[in-house]
Design a protein around this nucleic acid. Structure first.
Length: 572
DNA sequence: GCCGTTTTCGGCCCGACTGTTTTCAGTCG
């Protein structure tokens, strides 16, 4: 169970936030943040560890180990509880607004009693912030914009959070005696980048037992509804989970129905009507006789409609029905097609694990090749130097020689400067097996400048992949503005791949742009951008995004055999 | 609060950007 590490990471982060808001020592804040990341990204489950074991985690010393131990034993940390009584949760939530940090949040709370995003919005509109030190007109404008950004994702969460819940709930329910089948459906199964609620479907001969098990799961904080065939709960993370129990012989029809999307279902039901059939969550029925024809298997349901089974990620009514009826559906890329990861970090820059551990974990995933691409000096906070890069290369070559099963590639993640320039000169870049280049600053350039900037990066003969091209962070930062068709054409012309960054709060390039880019002949790399061992598993979200972008394996360079990949990586 | 050690204290990522505070504080990556 990974959940415990993430829970504790969340608590440590909350503790760090609360120390920051109360004006505590900034170094202490940073230590708790570092500890939170270390615990969240730690390769082993912390549940059951004693204090000594906990102290082996980087950045966890005596004090933090004691707090974690207290949490594991009692379910709470008394110092955290104490801070919580002093600072309303809404004040901490204020800091999720971009441009609003702990200092301003505390000032708003102390001087104006603002303890929620709603109150802040109201206070700005009422002119109640006037006279406050550091809150001018532009600041108010930025805050309103920030609130807007948060509202756009609304109560939705990124797929990583929702999937973590589903990965807990589905096995737990599957283990309940009498449960025959259980799976998640809905937008999560379609691999959408944000998820409103988690839909879980099950069949059981005794639905009551399953419902009781569901509503009493340990991380359920609120039972919204508890019925015979449908129950809804809210988890500790605030996410709603719906469970529907259907008869065993309705499984396929129910899974099809609850997977959606709504638009896709409208189309499938229309097709059914044309065939004198009726499609519902209970099955495919003959309209004339009312007789049920099939419902047990999803492929059979589609088959009755004259359609092949359709990959869930394609079910958005954006052409999949027409393709299924006509030229055929694409054979979209799957996780099994992925032969390697081309964008990852180590503790040489901002990663958590050393090169050896990352490579070991990559090999355990069965990869044929694996690229280490730590940050370049332009991100000055990472303190990278050419010497460090060369030393890492030596270390990587030795490790590669000792590990014949998987090819290690030495790369870097360059910074694309405001004019499209990158950190190192051509002669130094020539020494790398692979250069990824990404935007890490100046996110608000006008579209024309941003387009020139990205195109120029593509034109650099050593840049082979543009990392997280829109630089969006879901619920946090808007995508940069660019003339994407021009960028796509530059990629196709120069042989530069666009990345699908699989980090669940990025999923960048987003699926709609992936599909447009693929239509203009662009190639892709699906990368984890892992900063810790567990992040390597995020690859599945990148693959889901690629599927939603209708990508076939041939368009994804890290499904290619090494020889073909190396040919692609050769500087132009 | 953690870590490394010149090992029980001193340093901790640091520069850019923004808005507004006329000299800098807050936020971000």
């Amino acid at each position: 169970m990974r959940r415990c590490n993430e829970e504790v990471a969340g608590l440590l982060q909350e503790y760090a936030d609360l120390i920051a808001i109360t004006g505590g020592d900034a170094f202490k804040v940073r230590v708790y943040e570092k500890a939170a990341r270390s615990v969240g990204g730690y390769g082993r489950e912390i549940d059951g560890m004693d204090a000594a074991g906990l102290r082996a985690i980087p950045n966890v010393g005596a004090s933090i180990a004691a707090k974690i131990d207290e949490y594991l034993r009692t379910g709470s940390i008394h110092q955290l509880e104490e801070l919580r009584t002093r600072i309303p949760a809404g004040v901490r939530l204020l800091t999720t607004i971009p441009t609003l940090g702990p200092k301003k949040a505390m000032a708003l709370y102390h001087e104006r009693g603002v303890d929620s995003i709603e109150k802040l919005e109201h206070a700005i509109h009422a002119g109640a912030l006037q006279g406050m030190h550091g809150f001018g007109a532009k600041t108010e404008e930025n805050l309103l914009h920030g609130i807007d950004v948060i509202r756009k994702t609304g109560s939705r969460v990124h797929i990583g959070i929702a999937m973590a819940v589903a990965d807990e709930v589905v096995p737990a329910l599957s283990a309940v005696p009498g449960c025959e089948r259980c799976a998640y459906a809905g937008s999560l199964r379609r691999m959408k980048d944000t998820i409103g609620d988690v839909d879980v479907l099950a069949t059981a001969d005794d639905s009551a037992a399953l419902m009781t098990a569901f509503t009493t799961l340990p991380y359920v904080t609120e039972v919204i509804a508890h019925g015979e065939t449908k129950s809804s709960v809210r988890t500790a993370s605030g996410l709603q989970v719906d469970l529907r129990v259907v008869p065993g012989d309705s499984w396929g029809a129910a899974l099809q129905y609850f997977t959606g999307s709504k638009a896709h279902n409208i189309r499938t039901r229309e097709i059914a009507v044309h065939r004198k059939l009726k499609l519902s969550e209970y099955g495919v029925f003959d309209v004339a006789t009312g007789e049920k024809i099939t419902s047990a298997d999803e492929a059979e349901v589609y088959g009755m409609l004259g359609l092949p089974w359709i990959e869930p990620a394609l079910r958005e009514d954006t052409g999949e029905i027409e393709a299924a009826l006509g030229e055929g559906l694409p054979r979209v890329v799957t996780l099994a097609d992925i032969r390697g990861d081309l964008h990852t970090h180590t503790d040489l820059t901002d990663g958590l694990a050393p090169l050896e551990e990352m490579a070991e974990a990559a090999a355990a995933r069965g990869y044929d090749y694996y690229a280490v691409t730590d940050h370049a000096p332009g991100l000055s906070m990472q303190r990278m130097t050419g010497e460090k890069a060369l030393a890492q290369r030596e270390r990587l070559r030795r490790l590669g020689a000792a590990r014949p099963g998987m090819t290690l590639l030495h790369g870097c993640e360059l910074n694309i400067g405001p004019e499209g320039e990158v950190d190192w000169p051509p002669e130094f870049l020539a020494g790398f097996d692979l250069c990824v280049a990404s935007v890490h600053s100046h996110f608000t350039q006008p579209a024309e400048e941003m387009t020139r900037r990205l195109v120029r990066a593509c034109e650099n003969p050593y840049v082979k992949i543009i990392g997280h091209p829109t630089a969006r962070v879901i619920g946090r930062r808007e995508p940069v503005d660019a003339d994407w068709p021009r960028v796509f054409d530059a990629c196709a012309r120069t042989g530069t791949a666009l990345e699908i960054d699989a980090f669940p709060d990025r999923l960048d390039l987003p699926a709609d742009l992936v599909r447009r880019a693929a239509g203009r002949g662009v190639l892709f790399a699906i990368d984890s951008d892992a900063h810790a061992v567990p992040h390597l598993a995020n690859m599945r979200y990148g693959v889901g995004t690629a599927q939603r972008g209708w990508l076939t394996p041939d368009r994804v360079i890290n499904t290619w055999p090494l020889d073909r990949l190396r040919e692609f990586l050769r500087p132009r």
